[in-house]
Design a protein around this nucleic acid. Structure first.
Lengths: 203, 203
DNA sequence: GTCTATATTTTGATAGAC
DNA sequence: GTCTATCAAAATATAGAC
């Protein structure tokens, strides 16, 4: 019997205590595999084994390995969005420079926690049949930034937000791949790029 | 018999006319597979079929699918480096702004030719057992930019070059993923980020 | 709910004929 | 040099016992 390879969404929400532990273990095991060996190395058997559950159990929660990836990405996005909202909440009281710095701090904190995992999930998204809900989260993260920019009368806030997210991400990737570990110096440099960009686009 | 999965380098240089055509066809077919379906979809059987050659022939030139990826990346890098050198050659006669613009034009031209392929190969590099020679090419590309910056008395030219490559790449990725196709507007915005960054890092 | 065992499919790689 | 045929290994997914 041919199985549905396109299934992406977690099979069901685990409500029992035990089930949640299994799902968490699968996520964490998968994350480690991705970090250690990349996308190509992730498979359901290995993920189950490393999570300390059987493949059968894994398939009870995830219809495919893509579903695991989608779930991981979704989680990460939710966490970042929550943090972004927190930072953007009272932004009107602050200078542009301070807001930018706080937003970058939030983004960096998430990214630097697990840079390789972040990179891998970001790439996976590009070829993964896109999960509507997760795409929405991405848009909302951009939206939070655009809102801050629009309030400062920056033209084309949506485009600018996309540019800023892109440049920050690119610099974080380059830095982490080069093995650079000085986070505060990195923030300073990203801030230079972001504020320099905004200056020049405004002037 | 267990085969050597770690082999990366193309098996041999094709010297005959016919062989070169086969190798080219394999590269092009692989590139299309990567663009259409991502890294996970690339396999030797499919690449051979789409290239119009048999798997046996493919294995005559490539010891593994990783070798195909490594070869594709190596080619792309060589092309970009050649272009960068051309641009950087007479840079002393030009303003910083003009040099930056020319370098970005070169990078963009290469990237926008096949953005999805570029992204995929870049990601592949991260988990691919790194090909010494290709890593060297990457360093040389950064080196060309660093040289230009150092000549303008920009401190920490190597670090700045890495940042600039990263931010440009991140913005190109974001733009192409969003489906934006206005290349000249994109150049203008990347220039704003790069020059703004340099200004602030200098001042 | 979870596990073991297993079928099915896909992929990697080679042997041997032409 | 190239192809066909095929093997071996790995990965997906499920059935059925507990």
């Amino acid at each position: 019997m041919s199985t549905d390879r396109a299934a992406i969404h977690p099979r069901k929400m685990p409500v029992q205590r035990r089930s949640m532990a299994a799902v968490d273990a699968i996520y964490e095991a998968s994350a480690r595999i991705l970090e250690e060996s990349g996308l190509a190395a992730l498979n359901t058997n290995l993920a189950a084994e490393r999570a300390g559950v059987s493949v059968g159990s894994l398939y009870q929660y995830f219809p495919s390995k893509e579903a695991i990836l989608a779930g991981l990405l979704h989680r990460k996005r939710q966490e970042l969005l929550a943090d972004m909202r927190r930072v953007a909440a009272d932004h009107r009281a602050l200078s542009l420079e301070t807001v930018v710095e706080r937003l970058l701090n939030a983004a960096l904190r998430h990214y630097l926690e697990r840079p390789v995992l972040s990179r891998t999930l970001e790439y996976a998204e590009a070829y993964l049949p896109l999960d509507q809900e997760t795409a929405q989260l991405k848009a909302e993260i951009g939206g939070e930034i655009a809102k801050v920019l629009a309030d400062r009368d920056i033209a084309n806030a949506t485009l600018a937000a996309r540019d800023i997210v892109g440049m920050a991400r690119g610099m974080m990737d380059a830095s982490s791949q080069a093995g650079d570990s000085d986070a505060s110096a990195l923030i300073t440099r990203i801030k230079a790029a972001v504020l320099g960009y905004l200056d020049r686009m405004r002037g």
